[in-house]
Design a protein around this nucleic acid. Structure first.
Lengths: 230, 230
DNA sequence: CGTGAGGTTGATCGCTTTCAACGGAGGTGG
DNA sequence: CCACCTCCGTTGAAAGCGATCAACCTCACG
């Protein structure tokens, strides 16, 4: 459902790239992670890069007093753990039971060195990652709680349904706490604003993990703060 | 002062790279921009990349209702306008009078294609950019106003003074409004918290653009929210 | 059936925003 | 050269949004 790689091109142009990376021992390196199991921790030696084969993982950092910021959710085809530091600067854990391919950083770098076009592809990916992050800066810095929730649902919907759909059914793999820490809110505020959207008739919430977007366009308006005409 | 390229290695490993890019018409492409003059606007055709030779520029986006989010300040040696989109997704304007080198995107891409090691260098830069952005996510999503201000001053100080200095004098090139929009605050809140830091004796404010950090370590504590022991 | 984690809702608090007034610095024109 | 004006920054008062604290609900699981 949410992990449907087939409809996952928009914000994750990685599959094509990842597919080009062929290792002799490629499939032995895929292993399973339970929900909430760590792929790696902040400070661990950054020897590997990970490709999400199936499931969802989150990347986050925790401040000394417990505050947490989730940086991104990664979906099948996405790579995590990339970076030029010796140690991972972030934590990474499975949000759902996942299958993850471990790619030794050395061989990854070697591949890039051997095939410049691969490096350019990676650069392209990094760039589009950068521009995707700009949207999130706007969200964190300038949007209200309601706008954040609307934007989040919309982003999630866009990777799972055809672009011009007017409605959508989503199965959110992450908890309210994950969402809150991704949007810079508390769980209570996330919950309250989901309820608010439901009362306004923009979405439906058959179950807590199941969101039905009734009107995509209205949600888009709310996400941009265009108005409050509901 | 703030534009001292010599002490500008930490967050901008670009000079070395930029220096490797030699064009026959290299110096003809440097032009001057007045304060607040736009280098390019959101939606403009992204034909050029710009290197800050001297001065400071800001990159930002504005929502339809006027809310603004500044993504970054770029300093001498930094490149702006990179990206794989046809149109710039952001606005870019000079914060101070600046000298800017325009680099046609074509020739830039050609250079990368011709010299793979340049592409790898760029990838490295993009990566470290990504990890720098993570710090800003934490700041925007989880830090209080005081922590944001402290973090901002600290970041700015780190690019202008030797790493182990206990105090520092800064000349902030940007306005309170720029700072506010960078930190996701209002000008009033920025002003109030600078005053608060001053009253606590952590900083001094001889003039509004001039900040003296009296105790770097204390500022670091405040930036991380370690405590409020002042 | 009991238990515990995740989710929702209510009441209250407090930080940041908003609205408003004022002060100072720089620039322009009389 | 000075008066004026405008922009930027600061400060005060009040409002509002999201956080906090707390209770309760729901559901999966042992």
């Amino acid at each position: 459902m949410y992990a449907d790689a087939a409809v996952h091109q928009i914000s994750a142009p990685l599959p094509a790239t990842a597919e080009k990376i062929r290792y002799s021992d490629r499939d032995q390196r895929v292993s399973a992670f339970a929900k909430q199991e760590m792929l790696f921790c902040e400070g661990d030696k950054a020897d590997n890069i990970y490709e999400v084969v199936d499931g969802v993982v989150s990347t986050y950092r925790i401040l000394c007093d417990g505050r947490r910021q989730v940086f991104e959710f990664s979906y099948p085809g996405d790579l995590v753990g990339l970076g030029n530091l010796d140690a991972y600067p972030v934590n990474c854990e499975a949000v759902t039971p996942s299958r993850i391919r471990r790619i030794p950083k050395n061989s990854f770098l070697k591949s890039i060195k051997e095939r410049p076009e691969l490096g350019r592809k990676m650069l392209e990916i990094a760039m589009s990652e950068l521009s995707a992050m700009q949207n999130h800066f706007v969200l964190l810095g300038r949007k209200t709680a309601l706008e954040k929730i609307a934007s989040f649902l919309l982003d999630f919907a866009r990777r799972n349904v055809e672009p011009d759909a007017r409605s959508a059914t989503l199965d959110l793999p992450m908890t309210r706490s994950d969402i809150a820490d991704y949007l810079g809110l508390t769980v209570e505020t996330v919950s309250r604003n989901l309820t608010k959207l439901k009362l306004r008739g923009v979405i439906d919430l058959p179950q807590s993990a199941n969101v039905v977007i009734r009107d995509m366009f209205e949600l888009e308006d709310l996400a941009e703060g265009d108005e409050d005409t509901v």
